[in-house]
């Protein structure tokens, strides 16, 4: 199963986001970064990888690393079931798969909808988010994709 989203003529200043669920919290990423959404397939584990790197899978001949977003956010390692999906996203010059429970929504917002991240004590939460959205009484955290994954040749070793 795989979906792709065409970016329509957006109103000036508006953007589309893909929202997804991890545990009981909602997060989102900009749709422009998302290449496709795939079903979960078992990943080949990588030696010496951080716990949130589940391993690598074959994406039409290319090697795609899978990041367990729950683990990355410090919310415990995911135990994926076939219902889980992988959001294939561009970050800088890399393509990475994000493992999430389910895609929950596609949102069209304007910049005004995005609130700054409140001053919380934990570095992790402050760094991972680009902003906070309040939509229909829900709180959705806009993930900063660049933060997700270590720079090349750094942490992973």
């Amino acid at each position: 199963m795989s979906m792709s989203y065409a970016v329509k003529n957006l109103v000036q200043g508006s953007q589309e986001l893909i929202a997804f669920r991890i545990g009981d919290q909602e997060f989102c990423v900009n749709i422009m970064s998302v290449r496709e959404i795939r079903g979960w397939t078992p990943a080949t584990p990588m030696p010496h990888a951080p716990a949130y790197v589940m391993g690598i899978v074959n994406l039409r001949g290319a090697v795609l690393p899978i990041v367990d977003l729950s683990a990355r956010l410090g919310m415990g390692e995911a135990e994926p079931t076939p219902r889980y999906v992988i959001i294939v996203a561009h970050m800088r010059e890399r393509v990475v798969g994000l493992l999430v429970e389910a895609v929950s929504d596609i949102l069209t917002i304007t910049d005004e909808n995005i609130q700054p991240v409140p001053e919380v004590s934990s570095d992790l939460e402050r760094q991972c988010a680009r902003g906070i959205l309040a939509i229909d009484k829900r709180m959705i955290c806009l993930i900063d994709l660049d933060w997700l994954f270590p720079e090349k040749e750094s942490e992973a070793a």
Binding site: P47, I56, A62, V63, P65, R94, S154, A156
Partner: peptide, 10 residues
């Protein structure tokens, strides 16, 4: 592996 990930020792 380096294209989308990073060098892995071993």
């Amino acid at each position: 592996l380096e294209a989308n990930y990073t060098h892995v020792p071993g």
